[in-house]
Nucleic acid binder design. Structure first.
Lengths: 350, 350
DNA sequence: CTGAAAGCGCTAACAG
DNA sequence: CTGTTAGCGCTTTCAG
């Protein structure tokens, strides 16, 4: 090693200095650092990994879409990983690709990551390959075969329940739910929370409409629902669908929130600026990433330590202008499909 | 190596089989594959990298935000990288962190990536470290010291020009521009295109308002502009700002598009579902990623080959409901700030 | 506190 | 077609 020669020490001393190991005299340390600097020396990570069995890298399995939730998580994960001195490797899965998670995981493991985080997995039915490094699962039930699995979740069911209750407390007889794809654990959680709220209040449970998270699917659902004016309140499983749904309502001549209230989920940055500004739930995605990774890194670096599971993240309901009490005189239940709404002109908001 | 022993061959033969090298008998190949299978053998990538000097990984320097452009590109990049049989390493930069790109690049290079893509860099003023692997720069002028730099861009100036011309052709006397942060090359491109269009049509060039890509900044700009009703058309540098701006206009009692037309940029999935549906430009981000990476991988695998620069991606203007001809009787230029708009009630859309 | 020797698990080069 | 011999550049023993 040239650095060692230039500094007139052994290779091992260089290694010690660069790894901040103790038992090196200040003088040697200075000399080595100087030599390394002069030579523009950088350690070869592949060699380090081979010799030490560690890569100081963390792999993340995420979904290959630009959806708000997964991408926000990814951004948060990257930041925390970097701050902790690790590097990030990414393997995305494609929806509908069976065994996608297992494949992505295998690829990451091949690369020798020290730990992996599985972000918002969807239920693939299949069992997962066993993993010999610590795993962090973000937003799903812990059902992975790994020596050390830690999980962190937002407790979406609690949130969904709060959203639904907000609507119920406004006086709506019941609340419809525009659900996310049920292969997603987060979509199931939200559905469950909605159902809990309805039961707790003794409200009817209307049939669930399922979307695919997109505004387009929300729009389609909105057209379906627009014909039925007993629908006075909808809890959508994410903001995009909520916005699509609102759009469909407006086009059908129903006003939001006067005729129908809508609550979203996520608090995307746009939520406060659409018309009407959307009442929604903020997901503490950043806290989730931060908290989960702190746990994961702790387990990586202290293989023997016991870890307490992460606490659920807090709920935050943002009441804006898309929710209001139900319209005074709900149409009688029967023949409702026959009632034609004259276009009342544009949707209003003072 | 156990696999070699089990199959009764040399280590090198195993290596050959696993690397799909020629000159191995079908029989041996079968035997080796079988043994590897039985043992659940996986190659150690660190050792491969050390011995071969290649990692079959590509690094990407991206911005650590959840903005639509950067994240969509990242998703596209990941997919193409995976399809090409490479793995992905990510290093994000933080806005405002000087030398962020250089640092991220250094981290990636340390990891021994075979190539790197710099996605939507911002101008950091500082020079960039020199790089000894092929580099793909997405969306910026090529000014990097690297043996092989390839670039691909969307030609945002052409797009911006088209957006501005759309407004001009609708009859607007001029078009205001709500720009993105000028440290971003893409923001500069859009500004340049807007300016070109104005000049070509001999229109006045109003002062530029600069936002930070967020809907909140668009809203702030919208409030500023709302007092001036000579402003009949605005080209916003992205959809989020356009939506924030529209919101501010509506709150000020100005109708979109009757009183003021707005064009966005990006065609985020929500653009067609906000109120009014946003006229915008679709960025062929996916094509960009695909095209750029094809080039990069070609250069990685054929170090000697000459490459033609990627062709600019095509323009696609999506005319929806946020643009219309200007209002019939524009208020005279003077005293315009004194004119109070009685709240005309809600913004309309038939 | 410091150094010498011995690999980590693979692939490159050269023989057979 | 197949095997042998050396390393890749570090970190880990284990002695000084």
């Amino acid at each position: 090693m040239d650095v060692a020669r230039l500094a007139g020490v052994s290779q091992k001393t260089v290694s010690r200095v660069l790894n901040d190991e103790p038992y090196v005299s200040a003088d040697l340390r200075r000399r080595v650092l100087g030599a390394a600097q002069d030579l523009g020396y950088r350690r070869n990570q592949a060699a380090r990994a081979l010799a030490s069995g560690r890569t100081r890298s963390i792999g993340v399995v995420t979904l290959g879409t630009a959806l708000y939730g997964p991408t926000s998580l990814l951004v948060g994960i990257e930041r925390v990983v970097r701050e902790a001195g690790y590097t990030l490797r990414v393997a995305a899965t494609v929806e509908g690709d069976p065994g996608g998670i297992a494949g992505a995981l295998a690829s990451l493991l091949d690369q020798g990551v020290d730990g992996v985080v599985i972000s918002e997995p969807i239920d693939e039915g299949a069992g997962l390959i066993s993993v010999d490094v610590p795993v962090l699962v973000l937003g799903a039930p812990p059902n992975f075969a790994a020596p050390r699995v830690v999980t962190a979740r937002v407790g979406a069911d609690v949130h969904a329940r709060a959203a639904t209750e907000h609507l119920l407390e406004l006086g709506h007889a019941t609340v419809h739910h525009l659900a996310g794809p049920q292969r997603w654990y987060s979509a199931r959680d939200r559905l469950a929370g909605w159902r809990q709220a309805l039961r707790a209040h003794g409200a009817d449970e209307p049939p669930v409409v399922e979307g695919d998270w997109s505004a387009a699917s929300g729009y389609a659902a909105g057209r379906e629902l627009a014909g039925d004016d007993t629908v006075t309140a909808v809890f959508a499983a994410n903001d995009d669908m909520a916005i699509g749904l609102i759009r469909a309502q407006l086009e059908a001549g129903r006003r939001v929130p006067e005729d129908i209230s809508v609550v979203g989920f996520d608090d995307i940055p746009l939520a406060a600026y659409v018309t009407p500004p959307l009442t929604t739930l903020r997901q503490p995605l950043d806290g989730l990433a931060r908290q989960g990774l702190a746990l994961l890194i702790h387990v990586i670096e202290n293989p023997e330590a016991e870890v307490a599971p992460a606490a659920d993240q807090p709920v935050e309901l943002l009441v804006r202008a898309s929710t209001a009490p139900p319209p005074p005189r709900p149409t009688s239940g029967r023949d409702r499909r026959a009632i034609l709404h004259p276009p009342r002109g544009p949707h209003g908001r003072p």
